[in-house]
């Protein structure tokens, strides 16, 4: 579960409000989509949830652990897939995965099995011994996704996870998100691809210019807009009128 309570963050000494008074609760067992146009504040909020940025105000709890007061316990609760998978390019895939397993304290027996299984699933087994530098964008994305799943986190946070993935891997990732949620865990992801949100999410929120302008199920959003139309139209209408 993720509990976000009245969180704000601004840049340039308060001149630019990146996230403005956002409150949100994501329950276990659901896939929560976070939508917004470019520069709306999606990544800033995700960075605050994961402890990469410090919030100016408000509190964020992950499975009851406050990211500010008990950062290590909170960080153990989630696996994070950043929007830019260009990391540690001079490590091999297998070295990166073992580094993540070490940091999240996954025992030797469990990690060997999980790494093998996930590499197979993402068709990355033959690339694991090579430097990440030699991977394509999609392969980098996959290795980062695998790294985030090694400790079987109760909460899974993904920032634009489908970018660069081929259709097969994208499908697999959506399947895995579903499996994760069905096992009672939380999946929180940001996207600007409405089709993905429409197909995968149980609930979603729309953010624009740092403010959350809607949060609810797809049905609720449609009711809110008083008539059935595509999410694309709704999204455009909501973000333009905000």
């Amino acid at each position: 579960m993720i509990e976000i309570c009245r969180v704000s963050k601004s840049y340039n000494r308060g001149q630019v409000k990146a996230v403005d008074d956002v409150s949100l609760t994501v329950q276990g067992g659901e896939i929560f989509g976070f939508l917004g146009p470019n520069g709306a504040g999606k990544t800033t909020l995700i960075k605050m949830i994961t402890g990469i940025l410090n919030a100016d105000r408000g509190s964020i709890k992950i499975n009851g652990r406050d990211i500010k007061d008990s950062p290590l316990e909170a960080k153990m609760q989630f696996g994070f897939v950043p929007d830019d998978p260009n990391i540690f390019s001079r490590l091999t895939g297998i070295e990166y995965l073992n580094f993540m397993a070490d940091v999240y304290q996954v025992s030797s027996e469990i990690r060997v099995e999980r790494i093998q299984k996930l590499l197979e699933r993402f068709e990355m087994s033959t690339a694991a011994a090579d430097l990440i530098q030699s991977y394509s964008h999609g392969m980098k994305q996959k290795i980062v996704v695998i790294g985030a799943l090694l400790h079987n986190p109760p909460v899974w946070i993904l920032d634009e996870p489908m970018t660069g993935l081929d259709p097969r891997s994208s499908y697999d990732l959506k399947e895995m998100m579903r499996e994760h949620a069905d096992a009672g865990k939380t999946v929180f992801f940001s996207t600007h691809v409405l089709e993905v949100a429409e197909k995968v999410c149980d609930r979603l929120a729309i953010i624009n210019k740092g403010r959350m302008i809607f949060c609810g199920s797809l049905e609720e959003i449609r009711t809110h807009a008083r008539e059935n139309r595509s999410l694309e139209n709704l999204f455009l209408e909501l973000t333009e009128n905000a």
Partner: peptide
Amino acid sequence: ETTVKRKKLSEADYRRAGKGLPPLLSY
């Protein structure tokens, strides 16, 4: 250009690589 082996790791390779280190040493 980087050299690419694209070689499948054996079970023994996985076990060897997956011995595990304390987090500080791994970092």
